[in-house]
Each structure stands twice: as structure tokens, then as C-alpha cells.
Amino acid sequence: MTAETAVRRTDASQTTEAPPREWGHGLPAAGFLTPFLLLYLLFIIGPALYGLTMSFFNTSAVKPGLNSFAGFGNYAEALQSSDFWSSLWHTFWFTILTTPPLIVLALVFALLADRVGRGRWFFRLAFFVPYILPSAVVALIWMWIYTPGLGLIEAALTKIGPTSPNWLGDPGWAMPSLAMTTLWWTLGFNFVLYLAGLQEIPRELYEASAMDGAGPWQQIRSITVPLLGRTTTLVAVLQVIASLKVFDQMYIMTSGGPDFATRSILQYVYDSGFTNFRIGYASAVSMLFFLVVLAVSALWFTLVRRGEKEL
């Protein structure tokens, strides 16, 4: 997931301002784009259309071909299934828990790291390093931290006083615990985007405002945050999409448990399609989820964009 989102994030940041169109470059442009378009057709559009087709059939992983025609049967089954709705809610719950802190804390830490005089490289590195770890490594580290009886958090809490809940074993705590892990793991990426945004703010603005008697807090509120608006839009949209696509942490750390309390919609797709061999049904669920992500992204994008224009 990480490499793919990273690539897409860079793409998006570069396309925000389109240069004026120049005719006559069409042919070379098409030539340069062809390799990418071919791969895009082969690995994105093609499989997506195949998935859409399969969602109307009782396709099985272990039988050749599409199997019998199901019409909208798979879609009807998904919409009536409580497992579908509960796993969809788990994905949303995770998104709600992770998105605000991942935006706000990334901004706060970027501001702090930017103001550090000495050893700035150390702070930049320290916040970014967790991001380069693979999900399995992150999961193992945090499973140890959360372990009842032996874990770091429990040991620390018992010293202070309060009794520690069973972080990953209690259905109510499991999701916040996963959100914590994700916060630590992926904060670095938003942090770097904000740092880059901070570099682009002209120094003169700060100097001028200082002449006019603005304090540091006023500078942050009236110069830094508004001028970071475009970065915030990008971070917010990408973060919501990344959070909606959650799978790895849950699959490795809780396998969707306890009592399915952390099974995300993508794991539901995985369970139906690969464990139960029901590829047709899993495709239908994927298509429904695709529509949901599309709708959420569109809505979110309009909201954030509007907010940005008002500034």
C-alpha cells in the first residue's frame, strides 16, 4: 500500500497547477504517455472491468470461468448482510479515529521541527523513520507494546497507577489501539509534506509582519496556516483515502478480531473471496466499496476545496 500511495501522492502534488496548453506537442506527449497508459490499462482498468463482470456472476476461485449468472444477487446479498455493514462501519470508524490526529499532529510537529535551530535533520529523520518500516515490522513492534502482562504500555501504566485495558483483546479498545499504531507509523509522510509546504512560504512575509509587531502565534495563525492551505487539502484528501484502504495492520495484529470488532471492509472482501472462494461476491462488495470511496472522496474534496477558497 505504502509505495503505491507515495507514487500517487507525488503525482497529485504536481498536477495542482496545469501549465497553459501548447499545441504541437501532442504527438511526443502521447509517445511518452503510452508506456504508462498501457500498464494502466493492463493492471488497473482491465482488472477493474473484469471485477465488475465477475460481480454479476457466482464466480468461484476454484472453478474455471465465470460460473452461473447471478444478476444483482451478489449486490443484494451484500446490502442485506450485517457483516458487510459492520465491516464498512469499522473502516469508517478507523478513518474517523486516524484522520484528524494525522493532519493536526503532522502540522504541529512540522512547525516545531521547522523552528528548531540545531539538529533539525535529527527531528526530521526521527518523525519520518517509522514510515519507511514495512507494515509487518510495525505490527510486531506494537503487538509487543500492547501485550497484556508484559507490554511496555501496561508496565508504564501500572507504575503510575491506572489499570491497563487489554489493548488488542478488548473489542472496545482494539480499534483505538490500531489507530494509535497507525498514527505512529504514517505520521511521517504528512509531516514531510507539511515541511515541504513550509519551505515554500516566503521569508519576507514573516519579516514584514514582525516589523508590524506580529508575535509568533499571530504569524502561525495568519500567515503559516493559511498559506499551507493547499498542502492541507492534499494531506486531508490523501489521508482519508489511505485510511479507508486500511488492511495490513488489522490483518496482522488482530486478524479482524476480537469478535470481528476490527474487521475492515477490505478484510471482508479478502475473507469472502480468498478464504471462502467466493470471488463473485467479493467483487460485488469491492464495487460497492469503490462507490463509497468515490463518493466520500468527491464530497471531502469539495468541502476542503471550498474551505480553501474562502481563505
Binding site: N58, V62, K63, E77, N276
Partner: peptide, 8 residues
């Protein structure tokens, strides 16, 4: 589960 057509 029983009503679901067997995928195997």
C-alpha cells in the same frame, strides 16, 4: 450460509 451456493 446454507443458502449460499457452494463455491466449490
Amino acid at each position: 450460509l446454507a443458502k449460499t451456493a457452494s463455491p466449490v
